[in-house]
């Protein structure tokens, strides 16, 4: 049975830990918020939805930050949360309607401005969507972070060899689809 003194001490410790957590989270926000947004955007391709999903991912990361023992894994962890949330969001019926509307808008813009480029981009995204998920994640993260194998491997928490072979396979399939 905890005494009242112990409870008050726990309150003080909890508050102090909360301040530390907020401080750390603020630092993480500066480092990783763009990454979360881009991961969500690569799945959703719609700014408002991507921002909403990335915000949720960051808040969830904040809420569970204390449970993450190895803080070096934060970015990989955030990528996973953002990717999962974005996939879930995309699967929802509401999101599907919005995507179709956005696609119509994009097509109109492409007709007015850079038709060829937009068309190619549309085809490219469709080809990316058709990739199996492990290949899609690697391809998208390669686009976001560049093709540095050690960084991609750290983000995906996979061996470098696995990442390299997956990335190669993903690009090969894209190349075949976009010929």
């Amino acid at each position: 049975m905890h005494g009242p003194g112990e409870i008050l001490a726990e309150v003080a410790v909890t508050r102090e830990a909360s301040f530390d957590l907020e401080h750390e989270f603020e630092q993480r926000l500066g480092d990783s918020s763009k990454l979360a947004f881009r991961v969500a955007y690569s799945v959703l391709r719609q700014r408002e939805d991507a921002e909403d999903v990335a915000q949720e991912a960051l808040v969830r990361a904040y809420q569970n930050l204390s449970s993450l023992r190895d803080r070096e894994r934060f970015r990989a962890w955030l990528v996973r949360i953002s990717w999962r949330l974005a996939i879930d969001h995309r699967r929802s019926g509401k999101r599907r309607e919005l995507r179709e509307q956005a696609a119509v808008v994009d097509e109109q813009q492409s007709a007015e401005d850079e038709a060829a480029q937009s068309e190619f981009r549309e085809r490219m995204w469709r080809a990316i969507d058709d990739l199996p998920e492990p290949l899609r994640v690697v391809a998208v993260l390669g686009g976001i972070e560049g093709y540095q194998m050690n960084e991609l491997a750290a983000l995906l928490e996979l061996p470098e060899g696995t990442v390299k072979s997956r990335l190669h396979l993903a690009r090969k399939r894209l190349l075949q689809a976009l010929r």
């Binding site: 921002e51 490219m124 686009g143």
Partner: peptide
């Protein structure tokens, strides 16, 4: 084609969130 795919992909995901993004994250948290 490979160069175009890589370039398009980089360009397509080189988006930045709006200025309200971070304040909204803090508010939501």
């Amino acid at each position: 084609l490979v160069g175009r795919i890589d370039g398009e992909l980089r360009q397509a995901v080189a988006v930045v969130p709006s200025v309200e993004f971070l304040p909204r994250v803090r508010q939501r948290a």
